[in-house]
Write a protein that binds this DNA or RNA. Sequence first.
DNA 1: CACTTTTGCTTGCAATACTTAGCAATGCTC
DNA 2: GAGCATTGCTAAGTATTGCAAGCAAAAGTG
Lengths: 114, 114
Amino acid sequence: MKSYGEYIKALRESKGLTLRDVERQTEVSNAYLSQLESSKIKQPSPTMLYKLAELYGVKYEVLMEKVGYPVPQATTSVKSRKSEETVLHRVGVISKEEEMELLEYLKFMRGRRK
Amino acid sequence: MKSYGEYIKALRESKGLTLRDVERQTEVSNAYLSQLESSKIKQPSPTMLYKLAELYGVKYEVLMEKVGYPVPQATTSVKSRKSEETVLHRVGVISKEEEMELLEYLKFMRGRRK
DNA sequence: CACTTTTGCTTGCAATACTTAGCAATGCTC
DNA sequence: GAGCATTGCTAAGTATTGCAAGCAAAAGTG
């Protein structure tokens, strides 16, 4: 498996850009870019990856994955979509009584706010 | 806008977990968790956020966004969730603020009952 | 060839993520 | 109430991110 460094280096070169070109357009120092391309940085920040993704025209998630971060939509294989985000799922099982009470409270909240 | 710290703190408390409970289940030190909950860490790593998202049953992207990282699908604020057939959804779209408050209230409800 | 500019890279250095150790306050058990 | 465990938190330490400065090799330019 290719290191993420080789990957982003290939991207840059395919666009015919120098490290300093990229520095100008992304505000990331050429020194740091160089370290990135040789995979010397273990955990580059998402912000950095985003800037590069934008400039190179690749998906942000792809870089995230290359670096080894967990990626939202597990592009890799099957992800059980079990944890759909619903408020109910977040707080765990809710009894009927609790549910009723929460609904009451939500109603109250909304009435109050307006 | 509520800080990300308050948000994840509310999540933990709504589940009735202590910092050391979370430490055991996520391998993240309770000291660090405490710092996270008071937003003392400016850029917590995606890996950390992922662990918390898993444990708390929240979408990874939501935490990423709260922290201020770019998110693949720039889903800002309200975001209508896909209509799940949960009671809360029947009531309509729930904003982040409302969600926060509901979590608080659920915590209160549960504490009261025992 | 001289001389300048451009290129990728390395070397400190400040900032900060994350941990281990330990504290004060609260809660439990007898 | 004494003794012990649990709670959240801070302090101090280590490691890593990201930058500014500067270097040697390569590439113009005359």
